[in-house]
Design a protein around this nucleic acid. Structure first.
Length: 298
DNA sequence: AATTGGATCAACCGCGCGGGA
DNA sequence: TTCCCGCGCGGTTGATCCAAT
């Protein structure tokens, strides 16, 4: 019954990736490009299953990935898109090309859900209000429930591995210079935590805001179409600028892309976004205003 | 200084879909 | 038409970090 796990083979390694494994994988993909994951472990000699290789690449090593703090703008977009699409993290990630679905999912589960919960309890100051899940379709309980929202620690909590990822980043930078733009963005930076922290500390929020906004703006019609039909149909060229994230049509378990409860339970989005903005650092106001305008479209 | 418990995030698991044989 | 395989997605887990006590 059911398919056996992909990693049942004896000798398949699990757990955290080592810098050496990362370098092996990156070197291979530099040469052959991403894809054909089945052959990656065989050709590289990595003792990992194909799935693990793909995941490592898409969630961590892929160029153009931004790690670290989510900007208020990004938060707003995620809240928007989550309300619109439900827990379709891959679809949401396609509107934030610098973020991975895993990142967004984690950020939602650890930060935004709490914020929303707080927000709802602020709206309904009943002692019972805060106990319920805000968004259904989420289904997962969060571990812990403290309102102590820590900002992203990935910059400060440098491990011994961080310096190793810098090496990988250097490796990738050479590749980026000679490769076509990834995901249509021209960040061209690295996947390393260190390099990304640098990017963030330089304050490139404005750039990403513009990027995100333009990306979203390009998809207004698409999303309108999608919602009116009740199914998510990403266009090949418009919505999904990430070639690795082609959304399969008809892949949804539930044809309703909106988790039904969202419409009823979530507060008005623009109001919510304002609140999110207040909670977060100042700045981004103009972009957020644009977002507000955009939100009225929905 | 040691302990404890919450927060975070990388990685794994299981399932469904699409394409090819 | 059916079956098998590879891929991608969403949910969940576990290791680690960090702040509070």
């Amino acid at each position: 019954m059911g398919r056996p796990p992909c990693c049942v083979k004896v000798g398949i390694k699990k757990g955290p990736w080592t810098p050496e494994e990362d370098i092996t994988l990156v070197s291979y993909i530099q040469e052959h490009g991403p894809g054909n994951w089945r052959s990656v472990p065989t050709n590289t000699g990595l003792l990992r299953c194909s799935k693990s290789c793909r995941l490592r690449w898409t969630n961590y090593l892929r160029p153009g990935i931004k790690r670290g703090n989510f900007t208020p703008h990004e938060e707003g977009m995620i809240v928007h898109l989550q309300a619109l699409l439900g827990n379709k993290w891959a679809a949401i990630a396609s509107y934030l090309p610098q973020r991975t679905d895993n990142d967004i999912k984690n950020y939602w589960n650890t930060h935004l859900k709490k914020k929303l919960r707080k927000f709802q309890s602020a709206l309904e100051p009943s002692p019972m209000a805060a106990t319920d899940e805000i968004v259904s379709g989420d289904g997962t309980g969060t571990r812990g429930g403290s309102s102590n929202v820590k900002l992203n620690q990935s910059c400060s909590s440098s491990s011994s591995y961080a310096s190793s990822t810098e090496n990988i980043s250097r490796l990738l930078q050479g590749w980026m210079r000679s490769s076509p733009k990834v995901n249509g963005d021209s960040i061209g930076s690295s996947s390393s935590a260190a390099a990304n922290c640098d990017l963030i500390s330089r304050g490139d929020d404005q750039f990403e805001s513009i990027l995100s906004f333009e990306n979203m703006n390009n998809n207004v019609t698409l999303m309108e179409k999608s919602t009116s039909k009740g199914t998510l149909q990403e266009s090949e060229n418009g919505g999904n600028s990430n070639p690795e994230r082609k959304q399969k049509t008809g892949h949804e378990k539930n044809p309703n892309i909106n988790d039904n409860d969202n419409d009823n339970d979530n507060p008005p989005l623009s109001f919510l976004e304002k609140w999110l903005l207040d909670e977060s650092s100042a700045g981004q106001v103009e972009d957020m205003n644009q977002m507000m305008e955009l939100s009225s479209i929905f």
